[in-house]
């Protein structure tokens, strides 16, 4: 009967080989993990473009207020030009509706003035303003993926 339990050998010595091996293994695993997590976000998705056309500027005489329901954007026209304000509440993404003081969100009671500034409720940021552009043929289009500073109004010739 020979009793022998090997328990103090190998990696417990923390020799160079062990350190290198485990270091490399951890590094490799982090790489695999990072690559895998990157997988969840695609380069593009098959979804509607954020850009959409709104027609010619003649459709928006001064004083117009229009809402594009399927795009959730308000278009206003005043002396200083056209501007587009998002209808998406900055609190939790409900859709605001116009009211006497500006905009009112039905979900948690956020209120905004007519420029989209928060005047009440839990909303953390003012409503977003979007870029309006003109195509060669004069058609206007809004890029709802591109926020512009509040107060940006566009005058088109």
């Amino acid at each position: 009967m020979i009793k022998k339990t090997r328990n103090t050998e190998g990696v417990s010595r923390r020799d160079f080989l062990g350190l290198a091996a485990f270091g490399a293994a951890i590094l490799g695993s982090i790489g695999v993990l990072a690559g895998s997590l990157r997988f969840v976000k695609a380069d593009v998705y098959s979804e509607e473009s954020k850009k959409f056309k709104i027609g010619k500027k003649e459709n928006f005489p001064i004083g117009t207020t229009r809402k594009f329901d399927d795009k959730n954007v308000f278009i206003f026209s005043d002396d200083n030009g056209l501007f587009a304000i998002s209808a998406i509440c900055t609190h939790l993404g409900c859709i605001v509706s116009p009211s006497e003081f500006g905009f009112q969100c039905p979900c948690h009671g956020s209120r905004y003035d007519e420029n989209g500034n928060v005047i009440g409720g839990p909303a953390p940021r003012p409503l977003e303003w979007y870029e309006i552009n003109q195509e060669v043929d004069g058609t206007l289009f809004i890029d709802a993926g591109k926020a512009v500073p509040q107060g940006t109004k566009y005058l088109f010739a």
Binding site: L17, A21, A24, L27, G28, G31
Partner: peptide, 10 residues
């Protein structure tokens, strides 16, 4: 084996 495989993996 671990070291070599890890290096290949990296």
């Amino acid at each position: 084996l671990l070291l070599i495989s890890s290096l290949v993996l990296i």
